[in-house]
Every structure is written in C-alpha cells, then in structure tokens.
Amino acid sequence: MNRSKSDPLTDALIGEAVLALLKRKAPVSAGSLLAELGAMESRELDAQRRAAFPRIIADLQAVLAEKTHREAPASEQEHREKGEIRLSKAPQQGKDNLH
C-alpha cells in the first residue's frame, strides 16, 4: 500500500479490523488481519465500504508478497554470505569424505 495515496476509508477499515482482533485477544499478524478483513467484507452491508475491501486486501497481499520477495535469498552467493549451509546438494566425493 502506498501510504501517500491512502484514503480515510482504508485507514478506518484496517483500524476496525485490528481493533476487532485486539478485542478478541487474537494474534495481530498479517494473516489474521487479512482474515479479519475478509470476514468483515462478508458481513458489510454498506456498498461503499464493501467495495473497498477487495482493494485493501489486494494491496496488503501485494505488500506482503513484495516483502517476502525482498527478504528471500536470490542466489547461492547470498546463502554463503549469510553463512547458511545448503543441505540440498549431495556431498562431493573427495579427500574430506570418510567411508
């Protein structure tokens, strides 16, 4: 979501969803927020508010997908730089292997 283009209705609906989660003492996470927005959409009677939900949900999903994509290592080099060991490769035969 581009916060500079955010409208008051979007802010209000997201706020209502977060408050609903907090009142139920439910975990507040991206997944629970998306689920709550979907549930609110199904109950909403006002046409303008109901029409806003698909856009809000799609925007949040796009932000989450972008964040996931940015945080995912893109290459073997990134794994090495992070000190990660890839277990998917078969061990190479050589002097370090004990038989």
Rank of each mutant, 00 (worst) to 15 (best):
Q48D: 13
P54E: 10
L64M: 13
A51V: 06
A62W: 01
E78M: 11
S42W: 00
S75R: 06
R55C: 02
E78H: 10
E41H: 12
Q77Y: 12
A58V: 14
R70H: 13
E66M: 07
S42G: 00
R80V: 05
K82F: 05
R49T: 14
S75M: 10
H69P: 01
A62G: 08
M40W: 02
E41K: 11
R70Q: 14
Q61I: 14
D46E: 12
F53R: 03
A62Q: 06
R55H: 11
I57Y: 04
K67L: 12
A72Q: 13
G83Y: 01
R49K: 15
Q61N: 13
E44V: 03
M40Y: 04
P54Q: 08
G83M: 01
R43T: 03
R49Y: 08
G83W: 00
R50M: 05
I56T: 03
E78D: 14
R50Q: 10
R55L: 05
R70W: 12
H69N: 14
L64T: 10
S75N: 09
A65Q: 15
Q48C: 07
S42V: 04
I56Q: 03
T68E: 05
I56V: 06
K82P: 04
L64K: 03
R50S: 01
A47W: 03
V63H: 07
D46F: 04
H79I: 05
A65W: 15
V63T: 10
F53D: 01
E71D: 14
Q61C: 02
P73Y: 14
E76W: 07
G83D: 07
D59K: 09
L60C: 04
I57H: 03
F53A: 01
E41G: 06
E81W: 03
D46Y: 04
S42M: 09
H69G: 11
L45C: 06
P54C: 11
A72Y: 09
M40Q: 14
E76R: 05
D59G: 07
E76N: 04
D46S: 05
E81S: 14
E44I: 00
M40P: 03
H79C: 07
R55D: 09
R49A: 15
E78A: 15
R80W: 12
L45Y: 01
E66V: 05
A65K: 15
Q48I: 04
R43G: 01
A52S: 09
S75T: 13
A52M: 07
L60K: 09
Q48T: 14
D46K: 07
A52H: 02
E66W: 02
H79Y: 12
A62E: 15
A52G: 04
E66F: 06
R55K: 12
A74V: 10
